[in-house]
C-alpha cells in the first residue's frame, strides 16, 4: 500500500492510475457501469448486475469490465446502466430489467448497435 507523503507522490499515483485506466480503454475493453446508489438498489440494480455478470460468463466475454458507481441523479429512470464501447461515447440506458439488459448486451455490447428505445438523453 503506497503512502502519500508529498504532492509528487500523489501525482505519481495519479499517473499510474490514469495509465491503468488508459490501458483499459486502449485495450479495446468495453465498460459497463452500473448505478449502485440507494435508488438504484431499491429499483433492482443488484439483479441487473447479476444478469450482466452471468451473461458475461455464459457468453465468455473476456473484454468487458463491469464497474459500479453512485446514483446518477436519474431517479425517474432507475435502474440505470452506462455502456462505453472502446473509443465510443458513453451511452446511458434506463428503466431496465434483466431481460432488457440481456438484449443490450447482445445488441450493443456484442453487436455495437445502440438500442434507442431504452436510451436516456441527458
Amino acid at each position: 500500500m503506497p503512502t502519500i507523503k508529498s504532492l509528487d507522490d500523489l501525482t505519481r499515483i495519479r499517473e499510474e492510475v490514469l495509465k491503468k485506466q488508459e490501458l483499459i480503454t486502449t485495450s479495446g475493453k468495453t465498460e459497463i457501469i452500473v448505478g449502485m446508489g440507494t435508488v438504484g438498489r431499491a429499483t433492482g440494480t443488484q439483479e441487473i448486475l447479476t444478469a450482466i455478470l452471468s451473461y458475461i460468463e455464459e457468453h465468455n466475454l473476456g473484454n468487458v469490465i463491469v464497474r459500479q458507481t453512485g446514483d446518477m441523479g436519474l431517479d425517474s429512470f432507475e435502474p440505470v446502466i452506462q455502456v462505453i464501447l472502446p473509443g465510443k461515447e458513453r451511452v446511458t440506458y434506463g428503466k431496465l430489467n434483466p431481460e432488457i439488459v440481456k438484449s443490450i448486451l447482445s445488441n450493443h455490447v456484442i453487436g455495437g448497435k445502440i438500442i434507442e428505445e431504452f436510451k436516456v438523453e441527458r
Binding site: L10, R14, V17, L18, Q21, I33
Partner: peptide, 22 residues
C-alpha cells in the same frame, strides 16, 4: 458522482483528488 467507483480511492485520485489538500 455517477462516474467513479466510490469504493476505490484511486478513481478519486485519478480525477485530481486530494490535490487541493496537498
Amino acid at each position: 458522482v455517477g462516474l467513479i467507483d466510490p469504493e476505490n480511492i484511486e478513481d478519486y485520485i485519478a480525477l485530481d483528488g486530494y490535490q487541493a489538500l496537498g
